[in-house]
């Protein structure tokens, strides 16, 4: 069974008098454990797709089934609960809470979910160790390097053991070397079974994914799973 099933999804925005179709008649199916890169020029609908997959946004039409359940009819509090339990987000600008320490930032999803402090502590300690942040537990974000911040953010995104990890340009604010580290980390998580969807316009990064989706004008232009032989993009980086 597919983890994600999108059927005939439409999403349009009203900008003044004109209507912009961010997503139009989109069909997409992603299996559990897949590693998918979503690529395309800015304004192609990548971010809208990611927000939709992450239940932060609702489609105007169409059906979205997550783990077999139709999530388009859920209330916003029910969506929040699904986000809390099943989905992790990694953002380009990290989105750490500046007044909280690394450990507190990692614990935040558990705090919001009302998990007991004792269990929180144990899981945060484990996460700090797994992500090589043991020495940084009590540091606030402004005392951390970019790579460390993104590692804290990834630890936070995975602390609730989600089925789906959504990363929006996770290396966009990082230099090549730390970006590489972060991608290795995400791929490692994917290897452990987490479904990983990365939005990027970095060709090299996109090429590493097992499945590549190319978006253009709100439509799925190319899906490497549907046509595995043809290269996703004709003009190779260079």
């Amino acid at each position: 069974m597919s983890l994600i099933e999108l059927a005939n999804i439409e999403r349009s925005f009203r900008l003044g008098d004109s209507v912009v179709h961010a997503l139009a008649s989109l069909d997409l199916s992603i299996k559990a454990g897949e590693y998918v890169a979503v690529m395309g020029p800015s304004g192609s609908g990548k971010s809208t797709l990611l927000n939709l997959l992450g239940l932060l946004d609702r489609p105007n039409a169409g059906r979205y089934r997550l783990e077999g359940h139709d999530v388009t009819t859920l209330s916003s509090d029910q969506l929040a609960q699904v986000r809390s339990e099943r989905i992790g987000f990694v953002f380009q600008s990290f989105h750490l809470v500046p007044r909280l320490t690394a450990a507190e930032n990692i614990a935040l999803p558990m705090t919001l979910a009302g998990i007991a402090p004792k269990e929180r502590q144990a899981r945060v300690a484990q996460a700090l160790k797994d992500f090589g942040l043991d020495q940084r537990a009590d540091h606030r974000p402004d005392q951390l390097s970019g790579g460390q911040r993104q590692r804290v953010a990834i630890a936070r995104a995975t602390i609730m053991r989600p089925a789906l990890l959504l990363a929006d340009e996770p290396t966009g604010n990082l230099d090549r070397h730390t970006g590489e580290e972060v991608i290795n980390l995400l791929e490692g998580l994917n290897a452990q079974g987490v479904t990983l969807v990365i939005v990027t316009h970095d060709q090299a990064l996109g090429a590493r994914a097992r499945r590549r989706l190319l978006m253009e004008d709100g439509r799925l232009q190319h899906d490497s799973a549907a046509a595995p032989d043809s290269p996703p993009i004709s003009h190779a980086p260079g």
Binding site: A80, E85, I87, H95, L108, R156
Partner: peptide, 16 residues
Amino acid sequence: TGEIGLLKALGAPART
């Protein structure tokens, strides 16, 4: 505002 958006993304319901 950014923090509120984050809390929502992390699964905080409106009540929280």
